[in-house]
């Protein structure tokens, strides 16, 4: 049956001549640690100055080091001691000291905003009293803390905010330009290929025609030799074959039409939405929303009918692209 070791702050508290003073000292040191733009020596001097009347009877160094280590249990213990032992007047004086330690001229760090308010709640000091006290001590009203989880805060406090935005925009522009160039190149390559294909087809047709001509001449020669009936039958047969071949070709054509379109269609649909290949579903949805808002025909209602018609054509194209992407993506 052994007891856990006593933590440094517990030992300090046990050795102290006045527990409230030691606990208050730790809370003030905690506030000081979160004060910005002061050196360690300044912090210690300020702490010694504010707590000159305290009767704790030990060094300030250990308290400062405990506060620096952000030991939550020690702070909780100190808060409990302070809450248990402080009368109303003493509470006000603790808040007074905390404000003095936190700021000289009303400039207070964000963390200290929350710490001061925590202390006020701990010591049952209502918001009105706190703000009055703050105003009296610093000459400035106690503002509500700013919110660094918002874009607006950084717009105000980050001197590089606009430079960074511009850089990002430039990078995005460069990226879209690259993507456009790539798409153009691809289209040009496709056009070239098509031309080549057409040429090849023409050549083949020509060859076929020649062959057919030669064959027809041969047939004529043979037909002159053969009897009319045979000739008739042969022609009928050929006609049937032709028909069958036509039928075949038509079927093939239909098959080709119903087979899945080339993956290039995805790229084109993405380009319609102003996206590059590799965009995610979320990106597609977002881009569609933006484009739909931009090109909705109702927006052009006040302008000419022609404008509305153009817009509805654009809108239709965007919607088709979006529908297609939503099906395949």
């Amino acid at each position: 049956m052994s007891i856990a070791r006593f933590s440094p702050f517990e030992l300090l508290l046990l050795k102290s001549r006045s527990q409230v003073d030691t606990a208050t000292l730790l809370l003030l040191a905690w506030v000081l640690v979160h004060r910005q733009h002061v050196s360690e020596g300044q912090r210690r001097r300020r702490l010694a100055q504010v707590t000159a009347q305290f009767r704790h009877g030990h060094e300030l160094g250990p308290v400062m080091s405990i506060a620096h280590s952000q030991d939550l249990q020690a702070i909780q213990l100190a808060a409990e001691v302070v809450r248990k032992e402080c009368s109303k007047e003493r509470s006000l004086s603790v808040i007074h000291q905390a404000i003095t330690v936190a700021t000289d001229d009303g400039e207070i760090s964000l963390a200290n905003h929350y710490i001061l308010r925590f202390l006020a709640d701990l010591l049952n000091v209502v918001p009105n009293t706190l703000s009055t006290l703050f105003q009296e001590l610093t000459g400035k009203p106690l503002q509500s803390p700013e919110d660094p989880s918002r874009d607006a805060y950084w717009q105000r406090h980050d001197p590089e905010y606009h430079a960074r935005k511009a850089r990002e925009a430039q990078a995005a522009e460069q990226r879209t330009k690259d993507a456009q160039a790539r798409a153009e190149q691809r289209q040009r390559a496709k056009a070239d290929k098509q031309q080549e294909k057409q040429k090849r087809q023409q050549e083949k047709q020509r060859q076929q025609e020649e062959a057919r001509n030669a064959k027809a001449e041969a047939e004529q020669a043979r037909a002159r030799q053969e009897q009319a009936r045979q000739h008739e039958r042969a022609r009928q047969k050929r006609w049937q074959q032709e028909q069958a071949r036509h039928e075949d070709a038509r079927r093939q054509y239909r098959q080709r039409a119903s087979s899945p379109p080339p993956p290039d269609r995805t790229t084109r649909a993405l380009a319609v939405l102003g996206l590059t290949p590799g965009a995610s579903r979320t990106d597609v949805r977002r881009a569609y929303r933006r484009m739909a808002q931009l090109h909705h025909p109702d927006r052009f209602y006040t302008e000419s009918e022609h404008q509305v018609a153009l817009a509805s054509a654009r809108f239709q194209r965007i919607k088709n692209a979006y529908d297609y992407l939503m099906q395949t993506y």
Binding site: H34, Q70, L72, I75, Q76, A79, E80, R83, L110, A111, Y114, I115, R117, F118, A120, D121, L122, V126, P127, L130, P148, S149, W154, D158
Partner: peptide, 29 residues
């Protein structure tokens, strides 16, 4: 910015934990 936000985030979550332990989660401040 994330670094600055994280430091404050740590402090405020510490205060949240303290408030939970001391029964101050519904304080006026």
């Amino acid at each position: 910015r994330r670094e600055a936000y994280d430091t404050l985030h740590d402090t405020v979550s510490d205060i949240g934990r303290l408030r939970a332990r001391l029964g101050l989660t519904h304080g006026a401040h």
